[in-house]
């Protein structure tokens, strides 16, 4: 899996550039590059549905973030306890990575997962649902309540965005709502 490691290194470098760039627009473009690399990584990992979804979502996410960063400067200030804060964050991250390393050693090795539930799906999904795409049969038939919950969360988030981005409150009887400008 050399190509996967190359993609992961590319994503890490893109993320570091996105975090450390002075210009907000170049930071957003760098995080977009990382997201497109994630899409290719999904394709390498034999998940074509995820690759398509990630591509679309990445482009939309890029548009939203660019809308937020247009005509905005980046205040760069190193006041306060700069050294102490950075050291504390790095010590925390090193401890986090060490614990993560020991936790990851307990997992089954890469490429041989435990498929206790999925084996049933793999064998029976064709007769039970009639769908040839197993991902579609899982999200729309076996785990349809999860999809219902996803739709609920999506709806709540859209209502939240509309409530935040609306220009005027509802004061008069003849209120004309402006469309949310996102």
């Amino acid at each position: 899996m050399v190509e996967l490691h190359i993609l992961l290194f590319f994503m890490i470098i893109g993320a570091i550039i996105a975090i450390e760039a002075k210009d907000l627009l170049s930071a957003v473009v760098a995080v977009g590059a990382a997201g497109l690399a994630l899409s290719i990584a999904f394709l390498v990992l034999k998940a074509p549905d995820l690759a398509i979804t990630q591509l679309v979502v990445e482009i939309l996410c890029l548009i939203i973030l660019i809308r937020a960063t247009l005509k905005v400067d980046l205040p760069f200030s190193t006041s306060g306890r700069w050294l102490f804060n950075t050291l504390a964050v790095f010590v925390f991250l090193i401890i986090f990575l060490a614990f993560g390393y020991f936790a990851l050693k307990e997992l089954p090795s890469f490429g041989s997962p435990i498929m206790r539930v999925s084996q049933f799906y793999l064998e029976k999904a064709k007769e039970l649902t009639g769908a040839t795409n197993l991902v579609g049969s899982v999200i729309l038939n076996f785990r349809a309540y999860d999809t219902l919950g996803e739709a609920t969360v999506l709806f709540t988030a859209v209502i939240g965005v509309m409530a935040i981005m609306r220009r005027k409150g509802r004061k008069k009887v003849t209120d004309q709502e402006e469309p949310d400008e996102l």
Partner: peptide, 16 residues
């Protein structure tokens, strides 16, 4: 075949 269950739930997670 690879495991379809994480892929289906990650599909949900990406949209959220």
């Amino acid at each position: 075949m690879v495991d379809p269950l994480p892929q289906a739930l990650v599909l949900t997670s990406i949209v959220i």
